[in-house]
Design a protein around this nucleic acid. Structure first.
Lengths: 176, 176
DNA sequence: TACTCTGATGTCAGAACCTGACATGAGAGA
DNA sequence: TCTCTCATGTCAGGTTCTGACATCAGAGTA
């Protein structure tokens, strides 16, 4: 169904494509679609839960006594592992569809926020003060998001982790 | 209509309240509601355009030769002007409704992102490099958002600008 | 006053989204 | 073979949102 949806969105645009159409192409009924996805948009965000889990696990697995900066680093490393060169093509197609529709970008922001909330919880679980955890999560997700954007947009094949290091360095420089 | 909607959302919850009900309470038809608001959620975000305008104007009005940090400061000052103690009560009611519903938080994130995009554009208009503008906007909106959250949540009446200064200082410390 | 034009609102029909309730059917296990 | 469970189908219906056309009040003008 995810493949059918992506194809249909590419062919007709998100608004124009109907759930009935997606279901038909996937060989199921509309009702079945809604049993798998909470709404029409979710079909493009099926992987986001796995990403969140790996992020949380990465923070939990950081060495004992890690300070906040080290935890941020662990979080970024865990995130980067989810974006290999093989996935870039699919991610680009998906991203093109997302970029073309405000409703989908909206949902993407929600997923990002959910990721942020999970990160905050993971930081506080590691004993970080809550206020500090919020700021640290803000930094983590900002860096991730910028790196992701550049990963999708960049012509050359860059390592995701490199892009993150770059973004983090720039962020430091802005704050002087 | 905005008042009618807020009341109804408080009484019945966002999902339960229908657009027909809001329109009826406001003494108009459902169709008229949709002429003023693009969709059901927008009724709670009517002021966001004005906020964006004042933000952009604030950045444009910063002194010549301002560096990035000074532009961020001008942006934050312009934002803070929109949040006076008189508005706090209304903002709290609205925020409570928003917090209770994922669909509304989703829309809030979109508005925040729109604010960020406008900020980026305003920074580049002032001659800031694009990559740097993105980072600076990220910082600006993060600080604003944190301050706003605390402004809503805090029991005591704090000046919005003070809360922003505080958040900015903490952000610096996290990046160490 | 009478006319006209414009803008806001009402009315109506309908497509698409989404949900609840119940039915069906295939496969696992006793 | 029986039964239980789980995925899917079927159906009805409420809600959101839109397009097309009608109506009406008020402003401006002859």
């Amino acid at each position: 169904m995810r493949a059918a949806a992506l194809e249909l969105f590419e062919e007709q645009g998100y608004e124009q494509a109907t759930v009935a159409g997606i279901a038909e192409r996937a060989g199921v009924t509309e009702r079945t679609f809604y049993r798998y996805f909470a709404d029409k948009r979710e079909v493009l965000f099926a992987g986001s839960q796995r990403l969140e889990q790996s992020l949380v696990a990465g923070i939990a697995a950081a060495p004992d006594g890690s300070n906040t900066a080290a935890l941020v680093d662990a979080a970024l490393t865990a995130l980067a592992a989810n974006f290999t060169p093989q996935q870039q093509a699919f991610a680009r197609r998906r991203s093109a569809v997302l970029g073309a529709n405000p409703a989908l970008r909206e949902r993407e922001l929600l997923k990002l926020a959910s990721l942020k909330a999970a990160t905050i919880a993971a930081f506080t679980d590691r004993g970080t003060d809550e206020g500090r955890s919020i700021l640290a999560a803000e930094v983590t997700l900002s860096v991730f998001h910028i790196a992701f954007t550049r990963w999708i947009a960049g012509a050359e094949q860059r390592e995701f982790a490199d892009l993150q290091r770059e973004a983090l360095a720039e962020l430091r420089s802005v704050l002087g």
